[in-house]
Computed example of a mutant assay.
Amino acid sequence: MKIEFKDQIGIITGAASGLGQAIALNLSGKGVKLALFDRDKSGLEKTQSQLTSDSEIYPLDITIEADVESAINKVNEQFGRVDILVNCAGIAGKTNILSHEVEADNMRFVFDVNFMGSFYTSKYAIPFMLKNHYGRVLHIASISGKEGNAGMLAYSASKAAVIGMTKVQGKEYAENGITVNALAPAVIRTAMVEALPEQQVKYMTDKIPMKRCGSLEEAANTAAFIVSPEASFSTAFTFDLSGGRATY
């Protein structure tokens, strides 16, 4: 099936590297004009230099609500609409730690980035989608949000919250031409995964029946379908990208 995007505008968070960058490259190659969000300005510039469609970079911290609201308003002013939102920005926080040893500050920080950041962007992007009776929202969750990874309480719980938000938003806007879905990857080879302790990565990879990590290209291809016009009857759903690890 050929996926087509015509005159669409997309916002991608975490676009300076990893999965966000891979999705930006994929969608740009399909003609989507992009607004790229990330704290890393130099990383955004590197991503932008590789794109083939019109784009604009917005260096910002997605945990600051006022900055997110301002940036999304600017995207609408510049491009005239918002059709797609892909929330890729995320952090693992401190890992390989038992739950009773988790620091509250680390828990709050991980939730601020992984959950609140996705909440803020969808809060301010969805009203523009409602005006056009069309939109695609994709929150990047994780298999750990469904099944939990030992030693990763903050990350697992924050991604479970993202999945819960997806189910709520998907139901709320189902009659407005807007789909809201999540993607739950297992281990994808990104800089965030490379930074984890080897023991943590082995624990996660050993649970994958395919016995390998997923690639950025595999994840980006799946994401592109989910946010395409063709994916019009799936909402409030969590798509698995787990190499067989998912059990439900």
Rank of each mutant, 00 (worst) to 15 (best):
A157S: 15
A161Q: 04
S122A: 14
M107I: 14
H133T: 11
L130R: 13
G170Y: 05
G164H: 00
S144L: 10
S215W: 02
K146M: 15
E230C: 05
T179A: 08
T190W: 10
R108V: 13
S234M: 15
I188R: 14
A150T: 03
G135P: 01
G214Y: 04
G117Y: 03
C213K: 14
Q169Y: 11
F109C: 13
S228G: 05
A236V: 10
K159G: 14
Y173E: 05
F109A: 15
T166R: 03
Q199W: 00
S144Y: 07
V162S: 07
R136H: 01
S99N: 13
T166P: 04
L153P: 08
L196Y: 06
A231L: 02
D112Q: 03
S242A: 14
K202D: 13
N149W: 10
G151H: 03
V201P: 02
L153V: 14
V168K: 11
V162H: 08
I143E: 14
Q200E: 13
M165V: 08
A174R: 15
F128R: 09
T166N: 04
L153C: 09
K131R: 08
D206Q: 07
F109R: 15
I140W: 03
P185T: 05
I208Q: 05
M116G: 00
I163V: 13
V110S: 04
A224E: 01
G243P: 03
I208H: 04
D240C: 13
A236N: 13
I126E: 06
A157F: 08
I126H: 03
M129D: 00
L216W: 09
Y120G: 00
A174H: 12
E175W: 07
I208T: 11
S215Y: 02
G177C: 00
A174L: 13
F128W: 09
G145E: 07
K167T: 08
K211N: 11
F225A: 03
S228R: 06
G170H: 06
A191F: 07
V102Y: 09
S158L: 04
T238D: 04
P209V: 01
D105Y: 02
